[in-house]
Design a protein around this nucleic acid. Sequence first.
DNA 1: AGCAGACGCGTGCGTTGCGCACGCTATTCT
DNA 2: AGAATAGCGTGCGCAACGCACGCGTCTGCT
Lengths: 156, 156
Amino acid sequence: MRCARYSCGVENEVGHEIADALGILLRRTTRTQLHRQLTEGMGEGVDEQTYPVLSALARTGPRSAADLAPDVGIDRSGVTRRASRLEAAGLIRREADPTDRRAHLLVLTDQGRLAVAELRTRLAAHITTSLSTWPPGEAETFAHHLRRFTTQGPFA
Amino acid sequence: MRCARYSCGVENEVGHEIADALGILLRRTTRTQLHRQLTEGMGEGVDEQTYPVLSALARTGPRSAADLAPDVGIDRSGVTRRASRLEAAGLIRREADPTDRRAHLLVLTDQGRLAVAELRTRLAAHITTSLSTWPPGEAETFAHHLRRFTTQGPFA
DNA sequence: AGCAGACGCGTGCGTTGCGCACGCTATTCT
DNA sequence: AGAATAGCGTGCGCAACGCACGCGTCTGCT
């Protein structure tokens, strides 16, 4: 176990370090406390289970439940149920697919768009306040690295 | 929406960017596919639900179930049940607290320690391979930033 | 010292959510 | 046109969680 920082290129040490940090992040994420704090006061329909549906819809636009399922990681029926809850909360609505009359497209309502924006804003506020002590510029590089990691990394 | 990179200090743009990336990470995490892939072939007791317990024990040493509950984010009874599963799988064992005869300390067995190490190794391998295309040094910087973020950030 | 209240763990009950399998409707291919 | 296929929603069984309770243990007060 030699010194890892600034070693030649990429070594396993870096992977372990990131793995540890991600493990912490996973744990902090798994505990739904932050999600609850973020979703507090929102509509009754949005929680840590329905949020991925909203987020995916906001990212990729209207899609069908079956199409959404692999992104959310659950069964199609689960997406259907979550969508029903979100529909009851008025955050999304089912729209008939014009090209296929048996398909239902899930599309965010204005309220749903506001909800996603609000959630993102709250999360950004949390992050921004805690990043205010970082040296100038490092937050930006971290943000770029994080984005690159999520888009081309093992979580892509 | 002015240009955010290398702006003065920290602006909301950075928070939003990180929030988006974390949103993706949350979604990718919520979908248990990666976890399943990582825990495939491990003992039957370890899954995406029991992993946080193992991880927390590996990080902080033997603790009681009630003490562990807030870190895992579930009820004490839930920790008790997860611990029972892990105990049945031989990954942890309940040990009588020497200072309090009603308390049971959850302590990793050698097998449990190996399981945590194996999980961390698999995760590190995933990360390392995908980071091999990064410019030299950036992975280390990202690792340090990520660690700092998880230790002093809003997820601390 | 003795007793009452508090604390900690484990367990039954009710609830919730998921996966699988099925039925129904619409589409497509021969 | 008819048969096979695809897509959505729903019933059933299962797993897991939260809440509340009981039992054993500790602690503080008289």
